[in-house]
Structure formats: structure tokens, C-alpha cells
Amino acid sequence: MNALQRSWQRARRRRAGITMLLGLPWTLAATALTLRLAGFDAACVVGTLVLLACAGVAVARARQMDR
């Protein structure tokens, strides 16, 4: 793997990581609110779904970076 490919890979990972970190407070807030209103089982489902949505957005944003 050459230096250019490593640089692109690091940039994509950094962008995905930043996106995940920006989505984490929203995930925690949605999970805490659901826990308070609907209980533990619903909070687990909501937390999982919001984390999956954040991961999907992070992958999409990382793929926007092309050569």
C-alpha cells in the first residue's frame, strides 16, 4: 500500500470517527429518554437502531471522500 492510499484511508477513518462521535450524544439522549418513558427493552432497541443509523451515516460520509 503506498503513501497516498494510506493517507486516504486515514482521512476516511478520521471522518467516520468524527461522525460517530458527533452522533454519540444523540444516541445517549434518545436511549435515556426511551428508558425513562418506555423501559429497558425499548431503550435497548432504540439505542441499537440509533447506533446503526449513526454508523450508516458515518460510512456514507467516509465514502464521499474519493480520489
Rank of each mutant, 00 (worst) to 15 (best):
M1E: 13
M1G: 15
N2W: 07
N2F: 06
N2R: 08
N2P: 10
N2C: 10
N2S: 14
A3F: 09
L4Q: 10
L4W: 08
Q5E: 14
Q5D: 13
Q5I: 08
Q5T: 13
R6I: 07
R6G: 08
R6V: 04
R6M: 14
R6T: 12
S7W: 09
S7T: 08
S7P: 00
W8M: 15
W8E: 05
Q9G: 08
Q9N: 13
Q9W: 14
R10H: 12
R10P: 00
R10W: 13
A11Q: 12
R12C: 10
R13I: 11
R13M: 14
R13Y: 12
R14I: 07
R14F: 13
R14W: 13
R14M: 12
A16M: 15
A16D: 03
A16Y: 04
G17N: 14
I18T: 14
I18M: 14
I18P: 00
I18Y: 09
I18R: 15
T19N: 10
T19D: 06
T19Q: 04
T19S: 15
M20D: 00
M20F: 05
G23Y: 01
G23H: 01
G23T: 00
L24Q: 10
L24G: 06
P25E: 07
P25V: 09
P25H: 07
W26V: 08
W26G: 11
T27Q: 09
T27A: 14
L28T: 01
L28D: 00
L28A: 14
A29N: 01
A30N: 03
A32D: 02
A32Y: 05
A32N: 04
A32T: 04
A32H: 03
L33E: 06
L33F: 07
L33K: 01
T34H: 06
T34L: 03
L35M: 12
R36D: 06
R36C: 01
L37H: 11
L37T: 11
L37E: 15
A38C: 09
A38L: 15
G39V: 04
G39C: 05
G39H: 04
G39W: 02
F40I: 09
F40N: 05
D41T: 14
A42H: 12
A43R: 05
A43I: 07
A43M: 09
C44Q: 14
G47K: 06
G47T: 04
T48V: 13
T48Y: 11
T48F: 15
T48N: 11
T48G: 15
L49I: 10
V50R: 06
V50F: 05
V50A: 08
V50L: 08
L51V: 12
L51R: 06
L51W: 02
L51I: 04
L52Y: 01
L52D: 02
L52V: 12
L52N: 03
A53I: 03
A53T: 04
C54I: 02
C54L: 01
A55P: 00
G56A: 13
V57Y: 00
V59I: 12
V59F: 04
V59A: 08
V59E: 00
A60M: 03
R61G: 01
A62P: 10
A62N: 10
A62Q: 11
R63C: 08
Q64R: 15
Q64M: 09
Q64D: 04
M65D: 11
M65L: 15
M65T: 11
M65E: 09
D66K: 10
D66R: 15
D66Q: 13
R67I: 02
R67P: 12
